[in-house]
Amino acid sequence: MNHSMINAFVSMQSSQKHLDVISNNIANVNTTGYKTSAVTFQDVLRNVEPQDEQFKLDGRMTPLGTTSGFGGYVSNIYTQFTQGSLQETGNEYDFALQGDAFFVIDIPKFDDNGNILLDANGSEVYETLYSRNGAFNLSIKEDALTQKAYLATAEGYPIHLNDSLGIMQLQDIPKNHKIVVNQQGEVFADPPQDNVPNIYLGQLRIANVSSQHLLQPVGESSYALPDMDAQQLDQLVTIMDRDQILASGVKVHQGFIEQSSVNLTSEMTNMLSAQRSYQLGAKALASADSMLNLATNIRG
């Protein structure tokens, strides 16, 4: 296989990956809290083919040798954590973040048989995710004696709150109470009676992630950090309290959701460009194949 065919093949493969990323963005144009994915390209290999001294003619400004490459490949697929527009829903269980922060969600880990993993003490093992999707709902859990209500994700995973000491807990919402969340993420239960003060339930777990490029998408507009020890995690993630949220300028908007950050016009433009690049690679591959057939027939 000659250089032209390798170059064309590599370029076509990269264009296909680019198209896959663009297609995924377009498919999630209406997904709550979705962040746009983008790609970066890098040369596969470049080398200089030497030339004889006879090519060094009078008036030549460039050094001897011709640069030969093997196309470009997708070196990285990354997420652009730009702010999406906020859409009012009027639903008291919908929340949108404005600013550089994430909702912290804990989901159970499962084994290959679909059972929840347990640690050595018999406690359930949870995985921490970071999300901009605040489309929560009210989850009802019943047992033989009681009925308890909790905030939960759309998948049914409970939303843990931090109490006044910053301790994570699963807070029960009193029956017939409405949920009220201020812009600092403090959660209150509003009694149905007038002139009765709200009941403080806790603080939404909102985090600032200093190295967002480490976040990997895991679906449902959620992201996970790679495995690391507790010290490294503490350096990257800050679970913010009320004062830190105020100082950072982050705001929580109840009754709103954050729309996808995908710019459909830009994605369509990128798609056309990637398609043209793929077509150019296909034509180059066909031309190289025709030249090889021609050379083979002449030689034969």
Results as ranks from 00 to 15, higher is better:
residue 134 G to I: 02
residue 85 S to C: 12
residue 264 L to P: 01
residue 49 E to A: 14
residue 213 H to A: 15
residue 272 L to H: 08
residue 200 Y to C: 11
residue 89 T to D: 07
residue 6 I to T: 08
residue 284 A to Y: 06
residue 32 T to W: 01
residue 10 V to K: 08
residue 209 V to E: 05
residue 177 H to V: 09
residue 253 H to T: 04
residue 158 P to S: 01
residue 156 G to Y: 11
residue 13 Q to W: 07
residue 281 G to Y: 00
residue 181 V to A: 03
residue 26 I to Y: 09
residue 86 L to K: 08
residue 166 G to E: 06
residue 241 D to A: 06
residue 100 D to N: 13
residue 63 P to V: 08
residue 81 F to E: 06
residue 208 N to K: 14
residue 76 N to R: 09
residue 72 G to Y: 06
residue 200 Y to H: 11
residue 56 K to M: 14
residue 221 S to Q: 02
residue 232 Q to T: 05
residue 203 Q to T: 09
residue 157 Y to D: 11
residue 253 H to F: 06
residue 23 S to M: 13
residue 52 D to H: 11
residue 132 R to P: 00
residue 263 N to A: 10
residue 20 D to P: 04
residue 50 P to T: 05
residue 277 S to V: 03
residue 182 N to Q: 15
residue 150 Y to N: 01
residue 2 N to S: 06
residue 263 N to I: 12
residue 107 I to C: 12
residue 272 L to Y: 07
residue 200 Y to R: 10
residue 278 Y to K: 04
residue 257 I to T: 02
residue 272 L to V: 15
residue 196 V to L: 10
residue 207 A to L: 15
residue 272 L to R: 07
residue 138 L to A: 13
residue 251 K to A: 09
residue 210 S to F: 11
residue 115 N to R: 10
residue 7 N to P: 04
residue 80 Q to Y: 05
residue 146 T to R: 10
residue 62 T to Q: 11
residue 191 P to Q: 15
residue 49 E to S: 13
residue 287 S to N: 12
residue 271 M to A: 07
residue 79 T to I: 09
residue 6 I to V: 12
residue 69 G to Q: 09
residue 6 I to K: 04
residue 218 V to Q: 12
residue 242 R to T: 09
residue 133 N to Y: 04
residue 94 D to A: 15
residue 210 S to P: 02
residue 261 S to L: 07
residue 68 S to N: 10
residue 86 L to Q: 10
residue 95 F to W: 02
residue 259 Q to G: 14
residue 98 Q to D: 05
residue 179 I to M: 01
residue 206 I to G: 02
residue 99 G to M: 03
residue 146 T to E: 14
residue 291 M to D: 11
residue 5 M to F: 09
residue 245 I to V: 12
residue 180 V to G: 06
residue 242 R to Q: 08
residue 244 Q to P: 01
residue 113 N to D: 15
residue 96 A to Y: 01
residue 243 D to A: 14
residue 265 T to G: 00
residue 36 T to H: 03
residue 200 Y to T: 08
residue 216 Q to R: 08
residue 118 L to A: 08
residue 68 S to T: 10
residue 73 Y to K: 05
residue 278 Y to E: 04
residue 255 G to T: 02
residue 162 N to D: 10
residue 158 P to I: 03
residue 164 S to V: 12
residue 155 E to S: 12
residue 2 N to Y: 03
residue 170 L to W: 00
residue 284 A to S: 11
residue 109 K to A: 02
residue 269 T to M: 08
residue 131 S to F: 00
residue 295 A to K: 07
residue 298 I to L: 15
residue 1 M to Y: 08
residue 208 N to V: 12
residue 183 Q to V: 11
residue 273 S to G: 07
residue 100 D to M: 09
residue 116 I to N: 06
residue 140 I to E: 15
residue 279 Q to Y: 03
residue 164 S to F: 07
residue 50 P to D: 05
residue 241 D to I: 07
residue 66 T to E: 13
residue 34 Y to F: 09
residue 219 G to D: 04
residue 24 N to G: 11
residue 211 S to V: 10
residue 180 V to A: 13
residue 191 P to C: 15
residue 68 S to G: 06
residue 224 A to M: 08
residue 141 K to S: 14
residue 153 T to A: 12
residue 135 A to P: 06
residue 154 A to R: 09
residue 130 Y to D: 01
residue 142 E to V: 15
residue 195 N to V: 09
residue 121 N to I: 14
residue 130 Y to T: 03
residue 251 K to G: 03
residue 72 G to C: 13
residue 222 S to E: 01
residue 249 G to R: 04
residue 104 V to C: 00
residue 205 R to C: 06
residue 41 F to Y: 05
residue 100 D to S: 13
residue 277 S to C: 05
residue 76 N to A: 12
residue 121 N to V: 15
residue 274 A to M: 05
residue 192 P to R: 03
